[in-house]
Design a protein around this nucleic acid. Structure first.
Length: 262
DNA sequence: AAGTAGCACAACCGCGTCGCA
DNA sequence: GTGCGACGCGGTTGTGCTACT
């Protein structure tokens, strides 16, 4: 067991960054660009580990960062995205230009959690606190719509977190039928991988991927996608302008296919 | 004015994943 | 196919600031 330290801690600074360190890091990245964080500190003359440099740059020094208070729109978008994606802060940050995952994570923990609780919404499940407890999401493995009649999910009613109530019923189904494989999957578009430059996790493990092609958790870009075309157009609002999409947002507000990762 | 609690956010840590040899 | 190094992520901790008593 054990893992070798990412750097020689004995010769690195820790704690708050000084102005001089910031300047060195900015100057180096301006001259050489991002990348190769491991060797960057030495090359830039910094007594920091590469991880620390990367964090400092991404979370604080990057020129495209939007600093300042979150707007009400950003609040709501974070809530919607969190209801869909959970604590995938980097993915959520990718939808909010100028915001970092760390910033959003902190903001969530300090502001939005309380905001939701004050609204009577459980910030973890995005369900009403007064609602009877539902099966833990962690226990849900796979959702297959293969056996689901299409009409069973063609409903426009949505819950507080924007999920179709029928879809939620399926997600929270307690009695899986023979064909109800309960693995909750979120996968990337099948044909292309626009997030390739993003976090490795986004392009990696298949345990938490989202099919952005149809914007549906639990739907792979396979025949499953085509089999729910009706649902797709319904919940994404792609063919019904003015309708609310899967996140409960109006068409055009949030379109995964048009959004880029950081 | 001093002490304390709570808040906000920067930074660190450990681990999972990927790319490559 | 396997092992290793590097990167990126999410959770947690540390610290400074502000409000309150």
């Amino acid at each position: 067991m054990g893992r070798s330290p990412c750097c020689e801690k004995a010769h690195t600074n820790k704690g708050a960054w000084t102005k001089e360190e910031d300047d060195r890091l900015i100057a180096y990245i301006r001259a050489h660009g991002e990348g190769c964080w491991r060797s960057l500190p030495k090359a830039a003359g910094l007594l920091r580990c590469g991880k620390s440099c990367r964090l400092r740059w991404i979370n604080y020094l990057r020129p495209d960062l939007k600093r300042g208070n979150f707007t009400e729109d950003e609040d709501e978008l974070i809530i919607k995205l969190h209801s869909l994606l959970g604590n995938k802060w980097s993915v959520i940050a990718g939808r909010l230009p100028g915001r970092t995952d760390n910033e959003i994570k902190n903001y969530w923990n300090t502001h939005i959690r309380r905001k939701l609780i004050s609204r009577g919404i459980d910030p973890t499940t995005h369900r009403s606190i007064n609602e009877p407890a539902s099966p833990p999401v962690q226990e849900i493995k796979t959702i297959s719509f293969n056996s689901a009649p299409k009409e069973t999910i063609s409903t426009t009613s949505t819950t507080a977190c924007g999920l179709s109530s029928k879809v939620e019923e399926m997600i929270h189904a307690q009695e899986p039928g023979p064909d109800l494989n309960l693995e909750l999957r979120i996968s990337l578009p099948y044909q292309q991988d626009p997030f390739k430059t993003g976090g490795r996790r986004s392009s990696g493990g298949n345990s938490s991927t989202l099919c952005y092609d149809c914007s549906m958790p639990g739907i792979h870009k396979t025949e499953d996608c085509s089999s729910i075309t009706t649902t797709n157009s319904l919940i994404s609002g792609s063919s019904n302008s003015g309708r609310y999409d899967f996140l409960g947002l109006k068409t055009g507000v949030l379109d995964y296919r048009s959004l880029e990762m950081k």
